[in-house]
Design a protein around this nucleic acid. Structure first.
Length: 199
DNA sequence: AAGTAACA
DNA sequence: ACGG
């Protein structure tokens, strides 16, 4: 979905994310068990945030270092969820992944959420990346796609559990952020409540 | 295995 | 492939 956000929107969203990072500092996630650090840095917005450390993957309501609640999801990101997600409940998490030139993300599934009927909506800011995605089983074929600043993708339906990752960041590919990529992924984490029944 | 290394 |  090329150029979902125009340049003005990208700058506006970047400002909101920088403010969120100031309130909820970037941290370095670590692998379960081994404690090996990820090459990306992360933070979150929303009522729940995804964290990974030696104890495992989980969603939690507060920042692991500050203990404070995560800042709210920026309005422009909520708008993207509403326009692209086609899902009748709000997102609870907006994971913010920050990639430098050396950062990568191995192939994985997003499967720590309760409701796989809800899509994952992704927004890219800054440097272009080579994004890889495949089937919902490991070891299948993968395709490559460049994601540039302002692009949006939706992992929904059959693609909700597709393996995906980031192979590399392309140097010199952005005027918005010098050799840095910020990816936002919006997720519904918990099963939404059943519709209220009027008495 | 959301990790790395090493191979072609 | 390794190994959690």
């Amino acid at each position: 979905m090329p150029f979902y956000l125009d340049e003005a929107e990208q700058r506006a969203l970047l400002g909101l994310i920088e403010a969120a990072i100031a309130a909820a500092p970037l941290f370095q996630p670590r692998m379960p068990r081994t404690g090996k650090p990820f090459s990306v840095k992360m933070t979150n917005c929303g009522t729940l945030g995804w964290v990974s450390d030696q104890r495992g993957y989980r969603y939690q309501p507060a920042h692991p270092a500050t203990g404070r609640p995560w800042p709210p999801i920026p309005p422009l990101a909520l708008q993207a969820w509403n326009e692209l997600g086609r899902y009748p409940h709000p997102p609870e998490a907006c994971l913010v992944n920050v990639y430098g030139l050396a950062a990568r993300m191995g192939l994985h599934q997003d499967r720590d959420e309760e409701d796989f009927a809800a899509p994952v909506v992704s927004l890219s800011l800054g440097s272009t990346c080579i994004f890889r995605f495949g089937a919902a089983t490991r070891g299948g074929k993968t395709q490559s796609l460049e994601l540039a600043s302002g692009d949006a993708i939706v992992l929904g339906g059959a693609a909700r559990l597709a393996y995906h990752g980031v192979a590399r960041i392309l140097p010199g590919s952005s005027n918005l952020l010098a050799d840095r990529r910020i990816n936002l992924t919006l997720r519904r984490v918990t099963m939404p409540p059943r519709a209220a029944i009027d008495a």
